Computed example of a mutant assay.
Amino acid sequence: MVSQGKQVWSEDPDKLDPKSPIIKRHKILCTLPWRGFLVPSPGASLGNRSVVQNVSSILVFTLSGLDGTVENKYVLFSLTALCYNFVLLCNITVIFSITSDKCLHEPMYIFLCNLCINALYGTAGFYPKFMYDLLSQLHVISYAGCLIQIFVIYSSALCDFSTLTVMAYDRYAAICRPLEYHSEMTNHKIVKFIIFSWFAPLFCIAVLVLLTSRLALCGSNIEKIYCENWAVVKLACSSTTVNNVIGYIVLVVYFGHAVLIVGSYIQLIETCRKSKESRYKFMQTCTPHILTLLNVAISLMFDVLYSRYGSNSFPRGLRIFLALDFLLMPPILNPLIYGLTLTKIRKQMLQECKVQDYKTDEQFLSTGHQTCEHLTHYLFPPPTLNWYDKISKFFAVLH
């Protein structure tokens, strides 16, 4: 897609014939927004037999992960649209259930609400573009759009992990130190935790995207169905040492998150062995957290391993699944796990459904009652007085 390593030799550029093949080719390349083009460097000499330096400029990337899916594109589009609507429904339902009930305005449920909001944020960076590509003949994305997609998708993934770390600390404080829990988990501290769960991922991914944007690229083909940071870095012509170092630092930081989670659960298990009430509380509130944590961690591990060490020899279906796993599974399973296992949320969701059904039934019965009255009045009109009865009544009044 990009012209690489090609040189244009010319005499004085002002004397070039406009109809020459070089000028025609340059015009064609400039009219195609996804092509590379040749730009003379500011200090280049244009004397006899001088070289115009070649600088590749990537304006559009090609996403080749969807190649070969043309035959099933409508089926895939229908399944993807159904999946995205299901993600929106599940997460918005949990968010509305928590925000509408004051009894659920507790730290654990507030962090869960933050997890669902982050799921909406992350899926918005992938599903609309993916559905558009399924129906499009050209699977391309602009350079700026690619960097934005990287930022949104991976900041959302890291935000999931940060939120789960905060939730693990919350469960540790609630079960291991129940007497100090309410004095420790104040509203001010909850706000700090939420800011941390968003600021740390946004900052880390912003640094990685800025480092990627400074690289000179020698290609424009990304062998995935969405933009991924390491896939863009592999296209670089220059050294990527700084990108690798910062990337490993981010991995170490979030490995530290995992150590904190494991440490908190070791303390939780030791505490729960001493009390039956603690064991019940652990099973009720920590089980969904563990399932969600495993879901997110395994999905991210698949994505990292596939990005770094994946091979094109894998079947196409397996490659698409590995690419979609962390974008598909956590946003769907997280609200389902919490919605089905946490009693308060489940009761609130069922209560909302019952209230809506009651309102609908009441409106239906009221409308039906009015309709029956009109129909009865039309079929069986009330009796009216004829002239003989009116005259008889008149004389009776006079008498």
Rank of each mutant, 00 (worst) to 15 (best):
Y74G: 01
S311K: 09
E373D: 15
T212F: 05
S45D: 14
F151M: 06
G339W: 10
G125C: 04
I205V: 13
S197L: 05
F96P: 00
F364D: 11
F314N: 08
S366D: 11
Y306G: 00
Y338D: 03
R273I: 03
Y74Q: 06
V166G: 06
V191W: 08
N229F: 05
K189L: 08
L217E: 12
S41G: 14
L88D: 04
V70T: 08
T384D: 02
K189N: 12
A168L: 06
S57I: 04
I110A: 13
S264I: 04
S239Y: 15
F96V: 03
P201E: 05
G68K: 00
T212D: 12
N85K: 04
D357Q: 12
Y358C: 07
K274R: 15
V304C: 01
F321R: 01
E184Q: 02
I290R: 05
S45A: 10
S278C: 12
A168C: 15
C227W: 09
C272F: 11
S10V: 12
T285M: 11
L324R: 04
L179K: 08
D133Y: 06
S97K: 09
R279F: 05
A216Y: 08
I150E: 11
H26L: 12
L164W: 08
A119E: 05
P315T: 03
D17A: 10
K390E: 08
S183L: 11
V296P: 06
L291I: 10
T384W: 00
R319L: 13
V259D: 03
I58L: 01
I28D: 10
L350K: 13
R346C: 00
R171T: 02
V166T: 02
L217A: 10
T241Y: 12
M301P: 01
G5Y: 14
G219H: 10
K276E: 14
L294R: 00
Y127L: 01
M167V: 03
V70I: 10
E71Q: 12
F111Y: 08
E270T: 06
T80A: 08
M185I: 04
I391C: 07
